[in-house]
Amino acid sequence: MNGLLVHETRANHNEMIPTAHEVLGVVRETETEFTLRVKTDAEVHHGQFFQISLPKVGEVPISVSAIEDGFVEFTIRSVGKVTGELLRIRKGDRLFLRGPYGNSFPIHQFRGKDLVIIAGGTGVSPVRSTLRYFYQHRGEVPSLHFIAGFKDDNSVLFREDLELFRQRFDTIYSLDHDKVPGFEVGFVTEHVKQITFTDFSDYNVVIVGPPVMMHYVALECLKEGASEDKMWVSFERKMSCAIGKCGHCKIDETYVCLDGPVFNYSVAKSLLD
């Protein structure tokens, strides 16, 4: 699968040791979500993730929500032991990281083709860096349609970015039930039909969100004429190691940490837990 990853091993390298990084800023996104800006010079690709480490608390895999010169951002929902503790991180604190891990969205394949990005809830985080990239390099794609869905007004992430994206992309922002200016009402699946895949000469579709959302959005895209091999999704799984040892993220012979988290839909559709 994906050209099996049996590479030469690095001798006596301890991948489990995290390194300290300075937190450059903290932005509160919603009641439970916040974004940490962390200093790093690491080469990071859109869609990859890091293991964020809090000594004496634990480690969690978090995908990057922004990649800029000299820093990355992580947008975290505080739901567990580690993410709960991460809420206490302040600007100037040190954060321990290892990574980046996993593959990334194939930006090189996206260039020159129309791009559709459909994200739901926290699924907006892993695609945000891609969106920011094409915001800055708008000329690289003929069109970019971005559909973002959130549960309600209180769970909207990245409000500033969303406003910027309106200026350069074809955007549809939607809330499940709330009627709020600037947002449509309904699930993201209901807005897929506004994309006319047949008008594109070539295109890619990125779908990220909760498993059920990705499933139905993908079916909707297929119904609208999108083809499987042009669709991309990103998986989230429990992980302890992120380097293909701990076994938690395994689905058939696939390890999400190694072979994902980004999968072409033609592969992802057959990844059954």
Binding site: L5, V6, H7, T9, R10, A11, N12, H13, N14, E15, M16, C241, I243, G244, K245, Y255, C257, L258
Partner: peptide, 16 residues
């Protein structure tokens, strides 16, 4: 195979 060859990094703790 699992600890030394899966992925591109050998597991330090198993290996030692």
């Amino acid at each position: 195979n699992m600890f030394l060859r899966n992925g591109n990094v050998a597991d330090f703790y198993y290996k030692r």
